[in-house]
């Protein structure tokens, strides 16, 4: 994709921990196009949040470090910039929302002021203008009775409303890319649906790209057009979301989808993936999925598979599996 907005190439991140050096990202490659919604999927420890942190220059310091690869955002090489400049750029052109809005909002400031703050600081708007713009934003994300409510403090809002406020803040400077890290995980199911719909509407309205990070394969299909599945710090599979879900090219994706209780087969036995996601301190040799993989052969134990398009397979889909053709033919 030549006109990608965000392109991550062979990204490698290392953390130094008490137990030694770990590499939670080991060669992640992905692209987010202009105005596109990309779902970044994976279980705990797969590296999905670390990817977002690396892009935003938010890796824990001094423990975390990018040790290889590149991150490009709209012709700027983020990996070459000092962290301060990355954050300045992120403040204006990349917005971010997190799983837990309560801990991301400042409890001692009124929400209206918090939404207005970046407008005043970054755009130099006067208080009145900034407040008017904040009111508009809060209204757009669906906060009822805004004139009154914008003078309230974060604890006076419900979880869903707090997430709406976070979205208003992230959107305040009109970013080209919104990174949403598990935005609905802490919310009730009806609220989750509302927030997802809101994100989808905003994406279309503003022609904004979204990198939607989640462990829940169920919530993204309506919103995202493409998906990247991470496993143990590497891309297991990527492609159009419908191709990935209907014809998984990687045994891990296949296993994840089979683990979700499906509505049609109520009560039938689930087919989970054996074992648990590996600890980043001890990723297995060869293909990192091989200890849990029903297709694993001798080769998988020694040889790390590269991300590649399955031979004789038309859709724009790629998987890191030596036997992806076999996986596709069985599925």
């Amino acid at each position: 994709m030549p006109d990608a907005l965000l392109s991550i190439e062979d990204l490698q991140v290392e953390f130094s921990t008490r137990d030694g050096l770990v590499r939670p990202l080991d060669g992640v490659t992905l692209e987010v196009g202009h105005g596109e919604t990309l779902a970044l999927l994976g279980e705990s420890g797969s590296g999905k949040s670390v990817t977002a942190q690396a892009v935003m220059g938010l890796l824990p310091q001094p423990a975390g470090k990018i040790v290889g690869g590149r991150i490009r955002f709209d012709d700027q090489e983020l990996t070459a910039l000092p962290p301060q400049q990355v954050r300045a750029l992120c403040g204006t052109r990349i917005g971010m929302i997190f799983q837990d809005p309560l801990s991301s909002l400042n409890p001692v400031f009124r929400v209206g002021d918090q939404v207005a703050e970046p407008l005043r600081r970054r755009l130099g708007l006067r208080r009145r203008e900034a407040n008017a713009r904040a009111l508009e934003l809060l209204h757009r994300v669906g906060i009822p009775d805004v004139e009154h409510r914008m003078h309230h403090y974060p604890h006076q809002f419900s979880g869903g409303q707090r997430q709406r406020i976070m979205i208003a803040m992230a959107l305040s400077l009109g970013p080209d890319l919104l990174i949403a890290d598990e935005p609905t995980t802490a919310l009730d199911v009806t609220v989750q649906a509302q927030i997802m719909n809101l994100l989808r509407d905003l994406q279309q309205e503003r022609d904004m790209a979204i990198l939607l990070i989640t462990h829940d394969l169920g919530v993204v299909a309506d919103v995202a057009s493409r998906a990247v599945v991470l496993y143990a710090g590497r891309v297991a599979e990527q492609g159009r979301i419908r191709d990935v879900y209907d014809h998984s090219a990687h045994p891990y994706t296949e296993g994840l989808l089979a683990s979700i209780p499906q509505q049609e087969e109520g009560g039938a036995r689930l087919t989970p993936i054996a074992g648990a996601p590996p600890n980043p301190l001890a990723f297995p040799q060869g293909c990192r999925f091989h200890p849990r993989c029903p297709y694993a052969q001798e080769r998988c134990r020694d040889e790390l598979p590269e991300l590649r398009r399955p031979v004789g397979w038309a859709p724009d889909q790629a998987a890191s599996c030596h036997f992806t053709e076999e996986v596709l033919s069985r599925g």
């Binding site: 279980e43 705990s44 462990h215 296993g255 089979a258 683990s259 979700i260 036995r269 989970p272 996601p277």
Partner: peptide, 14 residues
């Protein structure tokens, strides 16, 4: 729990 592990525990409860 992670989805793949969640399915294991549901089967165990069954």
């Amino acid at each position: 729990l992670d989805v793949s592990v969640q399915a294991q525990v549901l089967n165990l409860l069954d």
